[in-house]
Design a protein around this nucleic acid. Structure first.
Lengths: 107, 107
DNA sequence: CCAATGGTTCAACTAAAGTCGAACTGTGGC
DNA sequence: GCCACAGTTCGACTTTAGTTGAACCATTGG
């Protein structure tokens, strides 16, 4: 158990619609996706609604998004670089990501 | 406990993106939504992957979709008429429903 | 009116997801 | 080299969601 330099990411062809929808069906995870829309972010900078969320919980949110193929999570110095997999999602589910992220924000 | 003639449905303005995404994140529920795309269906006709699913389970699937505002479920004779809330969803989350339902089917 | 049909609801259970402290690890700075 | 930092993983727990039989009810057909 560690901080493996490279975490596993599903291939574009393996992205599953239910998993993607599920990953985005949580307000915190949705918020993360929204923040990444403008471009990659270091994990440390991406702030959640709850600023004092334990890091293990935050890490878990990222795991769900990563395993669904919504984001990429790569080592970057001593931190982590998060990237929205915009192109992969667009290729597999055209229009979906835009429709979700353009939707009225969680009030 | 009964079969109330009218079940509660959320107003268009109250539809929540996370709930909608969650409702559609299950393969069975997604399948139902797809079947309703062509037009309303009587509940009895809409067949699932698993044909011998208990009716209580099927009813529960409908409940989740209804409470999220994805479908309307109205009394119709001794059965139930199911309708996709296309216009409400389009008004609140433009392009979302189409993107989801146009996506490659669950293999 | 009675029985069959089609569906909702309840209650009890099982299964899956979320939460979070603690242990751990790769990297960078000193 | 060593320590602090950023983040992952494990494990134990709480919480939420799914599953199903049984009870119920409204409608229709006889």
């Amino acid at each position: 158990m560690a901080t493996p330099a490279n975490l596993p990411h599903p291939e574009r062809a393996d992205l599953q619609l239910p998993s993607v929808l599920f990953a985005l069906s949580d307000p915190d995870r949705l918020e993360i996706a929204r923040q990444l829309r403008a471009g990659p972010l270091d994990m440390a900078e991406c702030a959640l609604s709850n600023p004092d969320m334990p890091k293990s919980t935050k890490s878990h949110l990222m795991k769900v998004l990563r395993e669904a193929g919504v984001i990429r999570n790569e080592a970057n110095g001593r931190g982590r670089r998060l990237t929205l997999r915009t192109e992969d999602l667009e290729a597999r589910f055209p229009g979906l990501l835009a429709a979700v992220l353009d939707a009225p924000a969680p009030d």
